[in-house]
Design a protein around this nucleic acid. Structure first.
Length: 498
DNA sequence: CTAGGGTTAG
């Protein structure tokens, strides 16, 4: 609104300032320079020149400043923020939106977008407009700032912007990424007008929260009014991967090849999702087929294949992919690559290879092992009966071991009959050192493995007395409206009704 | 000036 006034022809076009520059022409010249500006140093020159030769009273100056703000935010956000705070005296909503957008798009200053929105309200003379909200909501979605998001939603109602498609799409995205499916759904259901983005965000939200069936239902409904695009296809492929829905996945694949643009069919991201879908659905041949025809591959492409083959026990092909990846050059294996490689070794019981790859990862590639890597290595060693070496790894690792690691050692102990005393001792030590219920579960497991049922009972009693009955290591299932619990550490399957 | 991919590990 303010911007429209500033640019309207009723504004005098020949206001002269003391150095006799015809200012409107001057503003246009500066604007032209700005549009061609590519470097930060050039931008700083224009900035200095603008401050020297333009009057802040001139209605075009704010527009010019906002352009500087925009261009500098693309190169140097800190500079842009400084510029905003020191040189823009009375920002209009356009100027506010520009700086808020810059922060919302940056990787490290998202929270500043929300703060700036707050400042805009506090200044009191500017009202946020329909452009403001998508930016701030995006920042909220990233930060899981649901409480701020709710307040923004209230502001949106108050300002009568609740039928705007862009804003509603942003709201669905916010609620979806914060796990508030009911809220996302409500916005989606009640919005008066939907674009293809509305459907895509709703479907993506459902997929993210593992509501795969609902996602597919939503997708079918969408097709009554819109053509599926690349975004929708990606969500659908992930839903298929989650459900193991091979035939629908194949349909999506055919759709990509037949109905979408050639660029999309060659898109790395889309193809990576295709690989994942085929791998998760157990069709490794189709994954290979897609993989071999990909014109461009990234690290994720290779990782997906390595994991896919490892997951299905196809150990040698998985390791072969690593070799090909390294040989083809250009791409460096990362942490996830090695988690797949180690998991392949574990599946194949390849102890020395596993050790070698673990060393290769740390020494050659400088990758800091995380719990998953240690977990694979420990499990690999323990399964091979190398309990002492496995324990050695655990005691030397810089990360606190979790229940999964302990359990893999205990599993190995119970299967091989080795190291029973060690594990009992170890479980006791863990129990002494930490106050969680996990240690009790662990200890009762050790006793159960050792068939020392009296001790199992004693530990259970301590747990009940201390009120740690709701321990992890227990899963539940609802059958005919009745909840059943399965306790870890019991060899025979038992069903205890609660 | 506005909305949607942070894809891969268990």
């Amino acid at each position: 609104m303010v911007l429209a006034t500033a640019l309207s022809p009723t504004v005098p076009t020949t206001v002269a300032i003391n150095n006799n520059i015809q200012t409107t022409t001057h503003h246009h010249r500066l604007l032209h320079l700005l549009n061609q500006c590519t470097s930060m140093s050039h931008l700083k020159q224009i900035h200095a020149h603008t401050l020297r030769t333009t009057s802040t009273a001139h209605p075009h100056t704010l527009f010019l400043h906002t352009r500087i703000l925009h261009f500098s935010s693309l190169h140097h956000l800190h500079y842009a923020l400084l510029f905003f705070h020191t040189h823009i005296q009375n920002p209009n909503s356009f100027a506010w939106n520009t700086i808020i957008r810059a922060c919302a798009r940056s990787s490290h200053r998202k929270q500043e977008a929300i703060l700036l929105y707050h400042n805009m309200l506090c200044e009191g003379n500017v009202v946020p407009d329909k452009h403001s909200f998508p930016f701030v909501l995006k920042a909220c979605a990233y930060l899981f700032a649901i409480s701020e998001g709710k307040q923004l939603h209230a502001h949106i109602f108050k300002l009568g912007l609740d039928s705007d498609v862009y804003i509603n799409n942003s709201l669905i995205h916010l609620y979806g990424s914060c796990g508030r499916l009911e809220d996302a759904r409500q916005v989606f259901d009640e919005m008066p007008e939907r674009s293809v983005v509305s459907w895509n965000v709703m479907i993506e939200s459902l997929v993210q929260l593992n509501e795969f069936d609902d996602a597919l239902m939503c997708f079918r409904e969408m097709q009554e009014s819109f053509e599926a695009d690349g975004f929708a296809i990606q969500s659908i492929l992930r839903a298929c991967a989650g459900l193991g829905a091979l035939s629908l996945g194949m349909w999506a694949h055919a759709y990509v090849l037949r109905r979408c643009s050639p660029e999309l069919a060659h898109d790395v991201l889309v193809n990576n999702y295709l690989l994942e879908m085929y791998c998760k659905c157990g069709s490794l041949e189709s994954a290979e087929f897609v993989f071999e025809r990909m014109v461009k591959r990234d690290v994720t492409t290779w990782n997906t294949m390595i994991h896919g083959f490892a997951m299905h026990g196809r150990v040698l092909p998985a390791l072969e992919y690593l070799k090909r990846m390294v040989d083809s050059g250009g791409l460096t294996p990362n942490s996830i690559t090695f988690s797949g490689v180690l998991s392949a070794c574990r599946h194949g019981g390849m102890v020395s290879e596993g050790r070698n790859y673990f060393n290769l990862m740390t020494t050659r590639y400088g990758i800091e092992p995380v719990l998953e890597h240690y977990g694979c290595l420990v499990d690999l060693l323990a399964r091979a009966g190398l309990i002492v070496e496995a324990l050695d790894v655990v005691s030397n690792m810089p990360i606190k071991p979790d229940g999964v690691i302990w359990r893999s050692i205990l599993d190995a102990c119970s299967k091989t009959g080795v190291g029973m005393e060690v594990s009992e001792e170890m479980a006791k030590r863990v129990m002494e050192s930490e106050e969680g219920s996990g240690a009790y579960v662990l200890l009762s497991r050790v006793y159960a493995v050792a068939r020392k049922w009296d001790e199992v009972g004693a530990v259970r009693k301590v747990m009940v007395d201390k009120g740690v009955a709701k321990e992890p290591g227990c899963s539940s299932i609802e059958i005919d409206g009745v909840t059943h619990e399965f306790f870890a550490g019991e060899n025979e399957m038992s069903l205890s009704q609660i």
